[in-house]
Design a protein around this nucleic acid. Sequence first.
DNA 1: AACAACTAAACCTTTATAGGACTAGACCTA
DNA 2: TAGGTCTAGTCCTATAAAGGTTTAGTTGTT
Lengths: 248, 248
Amino acid sequence: MTRASSSPALAQTDQRLPLHARVKDDLIRRVRANEWGSTTPLPPESALAEEYGISVGTLRRVLAELAAEGLLERHQGRGTYVRRATFQHSLFRFFRMHGGTGQTPGSRILARNTQDAPAEVAKALNVEESSPVLHLHRLRLWDDTPFLVEDIWLPLPQFQPIANIALDELGSLLYPEYESRIGLIIGSATEELSVTQAPGEQAALLNCQAGDPLVRINRIARTHTGDVAEYRESYGLASSFRYQVEIN
Amino acid sequence: MTRASSSPALAQTDQRLPLHARVKDDLIRRVRANEWGSTTPLPPESALAEEYGISVGTLRRVLAELAAEGLLERHQGRGTYVRRATFQHSLFRFFRMHGGTGQTPGSRILARNTQDAPAEVAKALNVEESSPVLHLHRLRLWDDTPFLVEDIWLPLPQFQPIANIALDELGSLLYPEYESRIGLIIGSATEELSVTQAPGEQAALLNCQAGDPLVRINRIARTHTGDVAEYRESYGLASSFRYQVEIN
DNA sequence: AACAACTAAACCTTTATAGGACTAGACCTA
DNA sequence: TAGGTCTAGTCCTATAAAGGTTTAGTTGTT
């Protein structure tokens, strides 16, 4: 029950906290530091407990909490794994398309260029103003019907590979492309919803009147370590947006 | 480790489930049945464990899960309590008023009458169409500046006391009134956000142009037992609405 | 090559125990 | 009356142990 002698891994953590909290903090740190990919399991309970110099029961409590919070995934008989971000709760899910079931999603990149980061983009990406960024202008569709206009900004030179490849090689989903071409995994994001009125350009693309209300979603996407990797502004028809939340 | 003999309270639960899951289900049922108000504590761990015929460790696991899910609140040295709904996550929180800090919230009831429930309201309240309901038309303000127009429907005769009392006796918050005058506690709610354009009436009240985009929030509020107690439609200026969500 | 049986490794369930920390109220003292 | 001290009651931390279930792979048989 003494807190004097403990594993070196816990040296960095707050000594006033109970053991399980300190172990939890350290495990979060190690997950963020990408110590285990999402395909290699964490060491088994017994090994981790021994490593930290704590009992298996205490370690199990920590792992159960982290699983409940969605950071880890546990499978009886198989092991404990880092959970990939699922984006189950993205606001984008709430654009309800009229069509319904049998439709397929797609995307079309309308423009790709290198820019000096405008103030707003620089602030979101956490880079110097006017530093070079890659800009994508993109349309997202259901069965060739556009429902979302997107502007996406990526810091350079980090994302240079995305600037170089042929446009038709870019898949309809960008995050797998970041992962395969740059080895960068998006771990979390912040989205902000607001309502605007359609300027002429967006109105034409979305097939509505200039001035019609649009929902704007700004997303700042980050890696597991917390570094900002992408900033995007997406516009969709407000009339097809419906967001539900349970409160208590 | 046998599952044959167990507390009578568990007889109703699924015998194939592990003990902790069955106890959890039963505790949820008892909380919903209002067995403990939010001021009287649940029985202590030791008593509950004995009642269910399980060990304290297993019971603690269940209580910890329920606390993590927000159904219970635990206080070392004091006891375990049913948690009152906080509505921390209500969409209303995201109407950002320009003013800022030192302002005070208020509300003004513009109209109160008894109606035959319109189809939409009847469906939301889960009552027969054209059955009698109480309707409130209300303005919510910051420092006398209106920012939200609300229509509220309540089932009769249940809410008759609210129909009878003088309007100036109704406080600025309704849920405490339901609680003190009817003994009805709101336990959860579902909110749905959509965007509309202001009709003339709302525009005048909110001090904007007809046709300006409005955020509409429909809320269905329920008691702990799941019965619908209130339906409301609220309209606010879209330009002052900003909603943030963390995703992973 | 296909299938079944076995086995090791991993997580899961349940109980038990010893001691610690926090809270509210009772009691005592000034 | 005001303020401290004590104490019973309650939840919290940490460990230990015995047995169960699930998975993936290995081995053996046909």
